[in-house]
């Protein structure tokens, strides 16, 4: 079956496909700019203004200001670019996991251990 005919949804997962790549273009471009210290500094100085510079939608902008990762994913953010945003916020991948799953970081880490042991 062709990829494009395969309409399976994976629960709790937003595939970064063409819909998301288009929807999130400006958002991801902003996050891509966080590869540079200049971009990070400019963002930190004026978060909303920096979002506007990349043409983020109001929903995307609010989610950036709220550090709302799940909404950012649904609004087209790619986890690979959002990871740079998370890094800027000094959050690691377990912090992000906890935020997204509604667990505490300790609970999330415990789940990883459990999953890793195949239980």
């Amino acid at each position: 079956m062709s990829y494009i005919e395969d309409q399976r949804e994976v629960e709790g997962t937003v595939l970064f496909d063409h819909r998301m790549a288009k929807k999130g273009y400006g958002l991801n471009k902003m996050c891509f700019s966080f590869n540079d210290q200049v971009g990070r500094d400019e963002f930190s100085k004026d978060e909303a203004g920096y979002c506007d510079k990349f043409g983020l939608t109001e929903i995307q902008k609010k989610a950036v200001l709220d550090k709302d990762i799940l909404t950012l994913l649904k609004e087209g953010g790619s986890i690979y670019y959002l990871a740079k945003f998370a890094g800027l916020l000094k959050l690691n991948m377990q912090d992000i996991g906890a935020l997204q799953t509604g667990m505490s970081v300790e609970e999330f880490k415990a789940m990883l251990v459990k999953n890793g042991q195949g239980k």
Binding site: V10, E11, G12, T13, V14, I69, L70, L73, I79, L82, A83, M93, I96, G97, Q100, T101, G102, F108, M111, L112, N115, G116, Q117, G118
Partner: peptide
Amino acid sequence: HQLDGERAGIINRE
């Protein structure tokens, strides 16, 4: 592994 979404944290050892 899965980094993103409500499903973050999945590992399938088997």
